[in-house]
């Protein structure tokens, strides 16, 4: 192999691997990321079983129905609109009514939300950032209340 051929081989292989990486990233960006929505935004959406959504808001007071089996139901609200969420499994330790929550899952044809993971806060002085921002936009959020250490 001449010097030139060697160089071309290396450049070819490097180009191919990088092209694969870029291709994979673009393919994954298309349908593997979840978009953050508030209940108001969700109300205007058409259900798409292939689309993952992160629903954020507050757990509506008095809406938690723990049921008798392992499926729980609760409503997530942004104080304008609310959506019913069902989830099978164990809720996080810091899940409480009136507190911020992020549920990830899929919007069902009947307008309810089926979550496969539910995130609450990590500690008592933390509100999921997305939820805080969304509530702030709607002027329902008071800085001093939650984000102080």
């Amino acid at each position: 192999m001449t010097r030139k051929q060697r160089r071309l081989t290396f450049i070819g292989v490097i180009g191919a691997v990088l092209a694969c990486a870029v291709g994979l990233v673009f393919a994954a960006m298309g349908d593997k990321v979840a978009f953050f929505k508030t209940p108001s935004e969700l109300a205007t959406m058409t259900p798409d079983p292939g689309k993952r959504i992160r629903l954020g808001g507050l757990v509506e007071d008095g809406s938690l129905d723990r049921g008798t089996d392992t499926t729980v139901r609760f409503r997530v609200t942004d104080l304008n609109d609310a959506v019913t969420v069902s989830y099978t499994g164990i809720l996080p330790d810091l899940f409480r009514e009136g507190q911020g929550v992020v549920a990830e899952g899929i919007l069902q044809p009947d307008g309810t939300f089926r979550a496969d993971s539910v995130l609450a806060r990590h500690d008592e002085s933390y509100m999921p950032k997305e939820v805080a921002d969304a509530l702030k936009e709607q002027n329902h959020y008071f800085e001093s209340e939650t984000l102080t250490q």
Binding site: V17, A21, M29, V33, A34, F35, E104
Partner: peptide, 28 residues
């Protein structure tokens, strides 16, 4: 970084989790 950049540019909030990395990191 993509979610941070996207939010800074468009305000759209996304979450990139395991499905994304399984499809990109895994094959490599």
């Amino acid at each position: 970084l993509y979610p941070l950049v996207l939010e800074a540019l468009t305000g759209e909030k996304i979450s990139v989790g395991a499905p994304f990395f399984n499809l990109t990191f895994g094959p490599l």
